[in-house]
Nucleic acid binder design. Structure first.
Lengths: 254, 254
DNA sequence: CGCTTGATTGAGCATTATCAAGGCAGGTGG
DNA sequence: CCACCTGCCTTGATAATGCTCAATCAAGCG
């Protein structure tokens, strides 16, 4: 699955031949992980960087009172823990939502390849920066938007991120999240998430049935929650500069 | 002020001689910026990376309803926009809180130096990753903690970050923030911030007078808000591995 | 001294959480 | 094939939290 890794890195900018060659030399194996498992725990010092090929995962922390805060959603094509490869220790955990297919990339391999290839180092750096940009928007979302627009914004973001990796058909995508998980992302109670989703449905903005989410009116939903995609820094979708680098993927799953 | 830049980068790990030499060749000039000015606006494509030598600044976005969300506080030693050097366009703005001293580092210089020196590239990457870690903790803070602990957590974080750059004396530091600005950071109203600060004072946890904040009982305050400093990935303070790299600074100011 | 900005306090109100009780669908075992 | 079970969604009622509005106070500044 060097293919997948290369595609991820080249969604920033094309790599040199020597860099591609170096990527091809990596020995990578794909691994299956069931739903609701921890991929990484807080305090771990993982020796591998994980790349998600299929399925959803999330970064989270658990507060002492049991409150769980989800800080990021990881979808196919996302790295799990580029962090730790430079930082000493995981300061948060990562768990799967649905069943996932992941590749382990040895930390040392990343280290060496980034040292030898400035363009790859740049691409990794770019990944970190995009992650940061998304995180900032989440902060704005939670801190500044009312619950309905907050949830709507999440759905808009997912539409674009999943579309960028070829996981969207007719404005529909697999949506394996529990309402409780949405609540833990948005800083709301699950009950309130439920009512808010009902309202969004009632307004004809979305449909959510059998773990498939459909955005019935993209423009209206985006206007509703003031969604501006610039923070995603996408270059390869119908919202960006269109370069068609769809993610090599299996079927949508839940 | 190559000195400052070098110190920042070496707070991650020592640089090679050639890297240091390359840093010394940079021509940098210090600039004064008044309080409450924008350093960078959303949509800008800045040609310089800014390093803050003195004063406070913050990243923010303004929502269409006028709501301002502050996403990060920048203190002496922080970079402003490493982002854009790789991403195309600022997806947020940066403004000063107090009067600031900043250095402009030409984007091209960073680009070249990172390309030629893998250890410098790594150090920059590390900066991005630490920024990301802080951002995640802010998300946890806003999403998961009650207002009193939320504000207390901010104060604890500032204590450590400022201490790391030599801006703390007797658990006191300059605190130029307005209650409204705190509110915009924490997703609260200014009135509620006011009452919450009053409560923290009443509990004997802090003192805040004439723009100087004193933490009266560090341990108690940290316990109160469940503050765990691991996410700051500090190595050079009394909370970390103690290596004493205090920031070359002027006086505390407000 | 008058103006401006920020802090403080009170009162009423809206939002959102909590608690509690079903309901529905899918999976499992007899 | 059906009864049961479990996980998740849904809804109602009630309570708490935090916001808005509005007025006052305090400090800095020309």
């Amino acid at each position: 699955m060097q293919q997948a890794l290369r595609r991820k890195l080249e969604s920033f900018e094309p790599l040199s031949d020597s860099a591609r060659w170096a990527l091809n030399r990596l020995v990578l194996k794909v691994r299956q992980v069931a739903a609701r498992q921890d991929l990484i725990r807080e305090g771990d010092k993982p020796e591998n960087v994980l790349l998600i090929l299929d399925g959803f995962a999330y970064r989270y922390k658990v507060l002492p009172d049991g409150q769980r805060q989800i800080m990021a959603l990881l979808v196919p094509g996302d790295f799990c823990d580029l962090n730790v490869f430079i930082l000493d220790q995981m300061d948060h955990a990562i768990g799967t939502i649905s069943a996932c297919q992941v590749v382990d990339i040895p930390r040392q391999a990343i280290d060496e390849i980034a040292r030898d290839h400035a363009d790859i180092a740049r691409a990794f750096w770019w990944c970190s920066l995009v992650d940061g940009a998304v995180l900032r928007e989440w902060l704005v979302n939670i801190g500044g938007r009312l619950p309905p627009q907050r949830i709507a914004h999440l759905l808009c973001e997912l539409l674009m991120r999943l579309e960028a990796v070829g996981r969207v058909t007719d404005n529909s995508y697999a949506f394996p999240l529990t309402q409780t998980q949405i609540a833990d992302m948005m800083g709301l109670s699950d009950v309130h998430v439920n009512r808010t989703l009902r309202d969004l449905r009632a307004q004809g903005l979305i449909r959510l049935k059998r773990r498939v989410l459909t955005i019935l009116d993209v423009e209206r939903l985006q206007a509703f929650c003031d969604f501006t995609p610039n923070y995603l820094h996408l270059r390869n979708t119908r919202w960006g500069e269109r370069r068609d680098l769809s993610w090599p993927g299996t079927a949508q799953e839940g």
